[in-house]
Amino acid sequence: MLRLHVSTPADLTEAIVDVLQGTEAVSSLALIRGASVLPAGDLVVADVAREGANDIVNRLRDLGVHQRGTVHIEPVTTWLSRAGLTAEQATPGSSADAVVWAQVVQHSYEDVEFNWTYVSFMVLATFIAGIAIVLDSQILVIGAMVLGPEFGAVAALGVALVRRRGLLLGLAARALAFGFGIAIAATCAAALVGRALGWVALTDVEGPRPGTAFIYTPDKWSFIVAVLAAAAGVLSLTSARVGGLSGVFISVTTIPAAGNVALGLAFGAWKEVWGSSLQLVVNILGMALAGWLTLALQQAVWSRVPARRSRLLPGTGDDRPR
Rank of each mutant, 00 (worst) to 15 (best):
F178Y: 13
A175V: 04
G211P: 00
G211Y: 08
V162E: 03
T203M: 07
A175C: 14
G207R: 05
V146R: 04
P208C: 05
G148S: 14
G170T: 12
E206I: 13
A232Y: 00
V141R: 00
W199C: 04
A231E: 06
A153L: 06
L168A: 13
L176H: 11
A201V: 13
A230Q: 08
L237C: 05
A175H: 01
G179T: 08
S236D: 09
G143K: 00
G207N: 07
R163I: 06
V205M: 05
V227E: 07
V227M: 14
A226C: 11
I215F: 04
F223I: 14
P218C: 10
I224S: 08
L140G: 02
R163D: 04
V154Q: 12
V141C: 01
V200Q: 01
L168N: 07
G233I: 01
V193D: 09
A196T: 09
L228T: 11
L167D: 15
A196C: 04
I184K: 00
S236M: 02
I184C: 06
S137W: 06
I142Y: 10
L197V: 08
T238K: 03
T217M: 12
L237A: 15
S137K: 02
L161K: 03
G233M: 01
K220S: 12
A173M: 11
A175P: 04
R195N: 06
A172M: 06
L235S: 11
R163G: 04
F214E: 04
G194S: 11
L161N: 03
V200F: 07
T217E: 14
P218F: 03
A186M: 15
A232S: 12
R195L: 08
A156R: 03
G166L: 12
L176N: 09
T217G: 03
R164E: 15
R165Q: 13
T212V: 10
A226N: 06
V225D: 01
L176M: 13
R163H: 09
P208Y: 06
G152W: 07
G170Y: 09
L168E: 06
G233C: 05
A231R: 02
F151S: 01
Q138Y: 11
G143A: 14
A213K: 09
L168I: 12
G198N: 12
G179F: 00
E206D: 15
P208T: 11
R165F: 05
M145W: 02
P149K: 03
I224C: 08
R164M: 11
G166H: 05
G181P: 08
G143F: 01
A185D: 03
A156P: 06
I142A: 13
L202K: 14
A201N: 13
